[in-house]
Design a protein around this nucleic acid. Structure first.
Lengths: 186, 186
DNA sequence: CTATGATGTATGTCATGACACATATGTCGC
DNA sequence: GCGACATATGTGTCATGACATACATCATAG
């Protein structure tokens, strides 16, 4: 088996496993991993339009998070308000319950991150971040993550040394799956 | 953002991106990535029971791939035969069309792997494989991958130095998400 | 042989993801 | 103001993934 093939399946397996563990941890909150990601973003980054949320979501990126938000609204965690300037937009904000739930989600996610820290050394994590950053640069999901990092370090995205490192590395070597996706001749 | 959190989202983004690219490449064959994985396994590893296939699938692992196989059978790529010894089992084998389609899938996947090789150095790929192997060891999806590697190197799984390295490393440091998944008090 | 449990497979349900399309609203050229 | 187009959101559809359950068949204790 080619190394790259093994890597592809390991990435798939790691994603599945992380999702499985997080889903199990979130059962007590009646939330799915995707819902928890959306709730965290809405809680952290204040009133958001659906499209702004979609730009920051790594899950469900590129498409519409309407349905995920629907569930959060139905659960009373998020409030939808019509936009005032642009009546096409809606503004999403966390309810009081949503904010406290988001805090519980953060603590649960912390347990997952602790387990990642226990399994992978800091040095290896740096390598992983650089390499996976190269693979996801210029892709929808990768861009979502960069938008989130930019939102967390609003003054200067260079505040995050990891982002700076990935971008710098990318400048040197180019990045991303260099496959042009074109519609088939069908 | 914690390094581990960034890593989690990068793994998610890389999986999504790889899947997106592969799906686009497979459009010409009218196959999804999950279907192509199942077809490749059936084509490579001869008549398989559904449960044997499920044990090797990284996608859809843990559950049963009946529905994926249904589509392959409907497309004429795979044949279902009742088991002779055990009448509960079915035996899955690739049709002539399925075998040639599997070959085309291999070539398409090769393009994806070439792009991974272009984006990530061999040395970094080794680190990724070791680290992701640590994260997925002892998880359903990780076990599936190990079963596949064992099936490819039937005489001695140590034929694959990467597997040996991961296992050796795991012996030293322990591995996997060390979170015990237990049912909530609900 | 029969009752009991284990195993292999199929299917129902729910939430995602990816895609296409529909509708409402905004913007811009004229 | 009006029409063409862009944008924001909602919704329909299909294939997964994860879970639970149903059913047939096998294995085994007695």
């Amino acid at each position: 088996m080619r190394t790259a093939e093994q890597l592809r399946y390991l990435i798939l397996a790691a994603q599945r496993e992380g999702n499985r563990v997080l889903q199990a941890l979130l059962t007590e909150l009646d939330l799915t991993p995707a819902q928890s990601e959306a709730l965290g973003l809405i809680s952290d980054h204040g009133p958001l339009a659906l499209s702004e949320l979609g730009d920051m979501l790594v899950c469900d990126s590129g498409t519409n998070p309407s349905r995920i938000v629907n569930r959060l609204v139905a659960a009373g965690l998020v409030e939808r308000h019509p936009g005032k300037q642009d009546r096409r937009q809606i503004r999403l904000s966390a309810s009081r319950l949503g904010a406290s739930t988001a805090e519980r989600v953060r603590r649960i996610e912390g347990r997952l991150y602790d387990s990642i820290d226990a399994a992978v050394s800091d040095a290896d994590q740096q390598v992983l971040i650089r390499a996976l950053g190269r693979l996801t640069e210029h892709s929808p999901a990768g861009e979502s993550l960069h938008k989130r990092l930019a939102a967390e370090y609003p003054a200067d995205s260079g505040d995050d040394p990891l982002v700076a490192e990935v971008l710098e590395d990318a400048e040197e070597h180019g990045f991303g799956f260099d496959i042009v996706v074109e519609p088939g001749p069908a």
